[in-house]
Design a protein around this nucleic acid. Structure first.
Length: 833
RNA sequence: GGGGGUGUGGCGGAAUGGUAGACGCGACGGAUUCAAAAUCCGUUUUCGCAAGAAGUGUCGGUUCGAGUCCGACCACCCCUACCA
């Protein structure tokens, strides 16, 4: 028999199924919950999935062998636009498309031999999941966590839907790539901004998260401390006596030269109604505001309204009110004061429109004249921590840092009563309304008499109607009278259903909790959540560092508040690991017009096509269909077996870094597995080889530490090493079999099928999947005799072999020599190799 | 503009402040074979026949000793961006 992955992988998967090995059970063992971000059922699994789920599987199997009761589930992120787009393009129903894809992908995933408890599988579009999510929505609504407001939204004219700020990239829709327009719509919002401070502060406690992700979230939440105060207007229309302004640099108040308002500011809107020139300017700003060139070139546009405001520190000092396209209505108050001397943007604006530029401070020791001269050509913007000299100060000392001056200015404003210190966050409330069909319906009705009324819980789930068509853009729910028209649960009168559905990020914000009790009649079950939560290790792509993870952290808090999760689940993910992408070279040739023509990897051999043409090679790019640099995992599994794909995914590159898939690497992985299989088959007579025994113990120690540290590439290297050692060892009989069995155990998390083969060939009892993780004997980790390198002035000059007991003690000595002193040192640890 | 990260052989990458280049790929040589594939045994940082010397982006510093710590610079990558 030779290594036959097709046959043996099927066999061992059947054996695990028969033994129900991976069912997650609540018992007396300590629990371990490992979760990989679940896939969107696009239709086929790709190499990124293989890498993600292999890593999770290594952790799951390793923890299982260590005696933990492991929860390792799988499900489907099944709502979303691609299903609807497919229905539009090819006909059919999004539900059918989605469930067919799930079936295909499940069939592709299962041969990988992942230790998943498939009994917990669900899709977010399952009626049951929709039901529980709607039920929680009603609880959140009742707790005041959800509200409805009219808001300017980002409207994607192609997908005909609202986008979250986060889904707008460079002014374009994240999916359609169409320039986003602004529209005013009544929308449902989650009050995530109420939790801004908490979500930010709690980042400090997430020790198991990458620093990078914590930073990205902190920047996204964006806390700033500043002064909010009001300008008194001079000749503004009635109702606009005061204009609220927010600034993080109140210390520059004496350098103010103008007030700038957003084109969307209420005062400007009021003026625009009267004045066509202002209306025209605002329309122009809106148009430019969403195109990509505007963001690139960022030209500052302003319009002088002719109105003025009084300076808060000097009522006789009037500042002009300008409309400025760079002032955003949804940050701060939509109004600022311009301080051109100390702000790049304000300086550009003031220069363009001939507004005064007055320095508030200059370099230490500067006079008023020097400071003013300095800022004439450009703004003076030192670090806030740098001491400067205030030449137009009004609070605190003349010589102080910006930080101190800001605090003093806030104190001054509060004492004098013209303003107060406030902390603001960049984080907006989370708008979840989507004008799409294929999502979780928002369980609310609009009644003519009672207004907006939550659907009664006994009427849940509100399921999507099946008879819909996608031949015209827009939301089919809007034009489905029998579904849309309903009765008010409060008064029984005629009412209309809410036709918006929820952002799919809502579905993703609690699936990890649902896995703890996936088929329960309530969203969660206290005992199950209490036992399984939190997720001990979460694994996924860095692209979810902000949105998904931040929303989930908010959602967990909302679930704690509404009693759906225990208090300890405020932070649901104890540890997070973000894995790198799978990349591949891109192969292309040029057509007669010089345009790129891409070629599939299987069509290229040694840099040439079958017809002999040489291809251009672009190194390491993310696998993408359009560039044709994709390798289908299904083919790899068919040709080499799942273990080869898994082994390659774990070798070479550290898990957090990108890995380049190469055909030669995959073949090498396969060769190694086959060689090891042959070694296990070979019956060798012989005695114990103490060197091998020691090497095996060392391997146990090193592989264990590598897996613990998420350094799977090092674990793989150590297994290569011990396999090479075994190949050269004269050991035979039981001692050799023990070595083989131990190697099988060490490999089992990575290549579980081959591990079972070897375990069996080497006389292991039962399944290796049920074997307890081996423990290294500390006494075997040190050699009796060690080779110590001798350094002279840090350079290796010699090595000596000494009995272990002499390899202790001082590490270096300073010696005198006839010419100059030199240091001789020796390492108190054994030589490598 | 702001924030973060990374620079080590031909390549992916190893190295608790203590022998730089583990392990793998590729390449080269040999064995086996009629031949090839597969397999097995070697060699493979550079210069040098050798002894030896140099060597972790560049320049400095700390240290008996620096890929690792500190400072400056260079290059590349990622994220983010009119945030008042």
């Amino acid at each position: 028999m030779s290594y036959d992955p097709a046959q043996s992988e099927t066999r061992w998967q059947a054996a695990w199924d028969a033994a129900d090995s991976f069912r997650a059970l609540r018992d007396e063992r300590p629990k371990y919950y490992v979760l990989e971000m679940f896939p969107y059922p696009s239709g086929r699994i790709h190499m990124g999935h293989v890498r993600n789920y292999t890593m999770g599987d290594v952790v799951a199997r390793y923890k299982r062998a260590q005696g933990f009761s492991v929860l390792h589930p799988m499900g489907w992120d099944a709502f979303g636009m691609p299903a609807e787009n497919a229905a539009m393009e090819q006909g059919g129903h999004p539900r059918d498309w989605t469930y067919a894809n799930i079936a295909t992908m499940r069939d592709q995933l299962k041969p990988l031999g992942l230790s998943i408890d498939w009994s917990r599988e669900f899709a977010t579009c399952d009626d049951d999941y929709v039901h529980q999510q709607q039920s929680m929505f009603l609880d959140f609504l009742e707790s005041g966590l959800i509200y409805r407001k009219s808001a300017m939204v980002n409207w994607d004219p192609v997908d005909m839907t609202v986008l979250a700020n986060e889904q707008v990239i460079d002014g374009k829709g994240w999916r359609s790539n169409a320039p986003v327009e602004r529209r005013e719509l009544t929308q449902w919002f989650f009050r995530i901004s109420d939790y801004s401070g908490e979500l930010l502060d709690a980042l400090d406690g997430l020790d198991g998260w990458p620093e990078k992700v914590r930073l990205m979230q902190a920047n996204w939440i964006g806390r700033s401390r500043g002064l909010q105060f009001a300008f008194e207007t001079v000749n503004a229309p009635a109702g606009f006596d005061r204009i609220e302004v927010y600034t993080t640099r109140p210390d520059t108040l004496m350098g103010a030269s103008f007030a700038a308002l957003s084109p969307d500011h209420p005062l400007i809107k009021a003026l625009a109604a009267e004045r066509p020139d202002i209306a025209d300017f605002c329309a122009e700003c809106r148009r430019i505001g969403t195109t990509e060139e505007a963001i690139e070139t960022a030209e500052k546009l302003g319009f002088d309204t002719g109105l003025t405001v009084r300076h808060p520190l000097d009522p006789t000092w009037e500042l002009p009110i300008w409309i400025a396209n760079f002032v955003l209505m949804d940050y701060g108050t939509g109004a600022i004061f311009g301080s051109p001397a100390h702000d790049e943007r304000d300086h550009e604006f003031a220069t363009k429109y001939g507004l005064p530029i007055r320095a508030t401070f200059g370099p230490q020791g500067a006079t008023l004249e020097q400071a003013d001269a300095l800022v004439a050509d450009g703004p003076f913007v030192p670090l806030k921590s740098e001491p400067v000299t205030y030449v137009r100060g009004f609070a605190g000392a003349a010589d102080q840092t910006g930080e101190v001056a800001v605090a003093a200015a806030i104190q001054h404003a509060e004492a004098a009563g013209y303003g107060e210190g406030v902390t603001k966050f960049r984080l907006r409330d989370w708008g979840i309304s989507r004008q799409r069909y294929w999502g979780c319906p928002i369980p609310v009705v609009h009644c003519e008499t009672c207004g907006t009324v939550p659907e009664a819980k006994e009427n849940l789930p509100v399921l999507l109607p099946a008879d819909v068509s996608f031949d015209i853009p827009g939301n089919p729910l809007d034009r489905h009278p029998t579904w849309r028209d309903t009765v008010c649960p409060k008064c029984g009168g005629a009412a209309r259903r809410e036709t918006d559905t929820m952002d799919t990020f809502v579905d993703l914000s609690w699936y990890y909790a649902r896995f703890t009790a996936p088929h329960a009649a309530t969203p969660t079950v206290a005992e199950d959540a209490d036992y399984w939560m939190n997720v001990d290790q979460y694994i996924g792509g860095i692209e979810h560092a902000i949105l998904h993870l931040l929303y989930s952290r908010f959602f967990a808090r909302a679930m704690v508040k509404t009693g759906h999760l225990p208090e300890k689940s405020t932070e649901p993910f104890a540890a997070l690991f973000t894995q790198g992408m799978v990349t591949h070279e891109i192969y292309l040739t040029r057509d007669d017009r010089g345009r790129a023509v891409y070629h599939l990897p299987e069509d290229v051999t040694d840099g040439k096509l079958a017809d002999g043409r040489v291809v251009e090679i672009i190194p390491s790019a993310k696998m993408s269909k359009s560039k044709k640099n994709v390798v289908d995992p299904v083919n790899i599994v068919e040709n080499f077996g799942a273990d080869t794909a898994r082994w390659f995914m774990l070798s070479d590159s550290p898990p957090e870094r990108d890995i380049e898939w190469t055909a030669s690497g995959a073949e090498a992985a396969h060769r190694f597995l086959a060689r090891l299989y042959r070694q296990a088959e070979t019956v060798a007579e012989g005695a114990e080889d103490p060197d091998l025994t020691r090497a095996v113990h060392r391997a146990i120690d090193e592989v264990t530490r590598a897996i613990e540290g998420f350094a799977f590439n090092k674990a793989v290297a150590k297994i290569y090493e011990i396999a090479n050692t075994l190949g050269k060892s004269p050991a035979g009989g039981e001692s050799r079999k023990w070595a083989l069995r131990t190697i099988a155990q060490l490999m089992a998390p990575m290549v579980p099928h081959l591990a079972e083969d070897i375990w069996q060939l080497a006389g292991g009892q039962g399944l290796v999947v049920d074997a307890r993780w081996p423990v290294a004997d500390p006494a075997m980790l040190v050699d009796d005799s060690v080779t110590l390198p001798i350094q002279i002035n840090g350079k290796r000059r010699a090595e000596i072999s000494v009995p272990k007991r002499y390899a202790q003690g001082p590490r270096s000595r300073l010696l005198s020599s006839p010419t100059k002193p030199c240091s001789v040192s020796w390492m108190a640890r054994p030589s490598r190799s």
